[in-house]
């Protein structure tokens, strides 16, 4: 037999008080039964708190997603206006030359002019194609839930050199690659990053000097710093902050080909990886594009050590629990 005051429950204390007198004596069976009810009640209370917390987390994530979507929408509007502006230029060219061809083919005689005009149309169409490819890549970068691979940057740069083979040869470029690390990232994005930066290093060359590109790496405690150094035309100080914006061309499109999206894509890739990108340059004296790649491998290199102690930890975990 037990006295009512011995009933340990805080949760059910009121209900118990309402049901019994202060000096009620409970039989062992009833006492045990109340204890079981109390235990179930505690479980349901715990479940309720868990589920409420899960709902709070979900609503806060929903709010953040809404804010981030609204911001992305604004950026998208701006982006669209810039895209339409840049797509209009080749369309205007195509349209004008098509009209000229229309006039020209009615005239008798040779068609040399028509051929010239057609080549303008073709080149404008090719520019549009490049722009659309870049736009698609840019858009895909927004998809966050892609998975990471382990990437050997030395192998990746070899692939970039193959992809840019034509450009490298045409410009008689020299590319020096120092030892690069293995990182974690989405390989098609990191490939595009290196391809854009190395491509730029060659494209924005001085006319009189053959391009020279050096790719190197400095290892820090938490990150790798990668340098892509060239001997090209360089960047004016006032433009350094703008180079990574979409459609911010610093040089005329006629002199230096490009869609105006290359560096913006690089910035977005680096942002996704959680690194930083910047440029060090003096106009006329080449440029060094520098970016940091976080060493997520720090965590992984510690896995082995953590595994060694796993058994001890589990035993400790369970012993703590059953005590």
């Amino acid at each position: 037999m037990k006295k009512l005051e011995q009933f340990p429950s805080k949760l059910l204390s009121r209900q118990v008080k309402r049901s019994f007198n202060q000096d009620t004596v409970l039989s062992d069976d009833l006492f045990k039964f109340l204890q079981m009810i109390n235990q179930s009640y505690e479980h349901y209370e715990r479940d309720r708190r868990l589920i409420e917390r899960a709902m709070d987390i979900s609503s806060s994530e929903l709010r953040n997603s809404y804010r981030s979507l609204a911001k992305q929408n604004e950026e998208l509007e701006l982006f669209v206006s810039r895209v339409s502006h840049d797509l209009k230029a080749p369309i205007r060219t195509i349209n004008s030359f098509a009209q000229l061809i229309n006039k020209e083919i009615r005239k008798p005689g040779n068609n040399d002019k028509v051929l010239d005009y057609l080549s303008f149309i073709t080149s404008s169409a090719q520019n549009m194609q490049l722009l659309i490819d870049d736009l698609l890549f840019h858009a895909r970068l927004g998809l966050k839930l892609e998975l990471e691979d382990e990437i050997d940057l030395n192998e990746l740069v070899n692939v970039v050199k193959k992809n840019l083979g034509g450009l490298i040869e045409e410009n008689e470029s020299t590319i020096i690659v120092e030892d690069l690390p293995i990182i974690n990232g989405r390989s098609h994005e990191v490939l595009q990053l290196f391809q854009n930066l190395i491509g730029n290093a060659i494209k924005f060359r001085k006319k009189e000097v053959n391009p020279f590109v050096k790719i190197s790496c400095k290892e820090k405690e938490l990150e790798y710093i990668i340098f892509i150094e060239d001997n090209g035309i360089g960047i004016k100080k006032k433009n350094k902050d703008f180079v990574f914006g979409a459609f911010h061309r610093l040089n005329s499109a006629s002199e230096y080909e490009g869609t105006g999206l290359g560096l913006s894509i690089c910035k977005k890739i680096i942002d996704n990886i959680g690194g930083r990108i910047w440029v060090e340059s003096e106009f006329g004296k080449g440029a060094i594009f520098v970016f940091s790649l976080p060493k997520s491998s720090k965590a992984e290199s510690n896995i082995k050590n953590s595994n060694v102690n796993i058994n001890d930890r589990i035993a400790g975990q369970i012993n703590a629990l059953i005590k």
Binding site: A299, N302, I303, I310, R313, I314, Q317
Partner: peptide
């Protein structure tokens, strides 16, 4: 979950 590691912020 067998163990958690605060250092590597991971769960085994």
């Amino acid at each position: 979950i067998l163990s958690i590691c605060e250092e590597t912020r991971s769960m085994t």
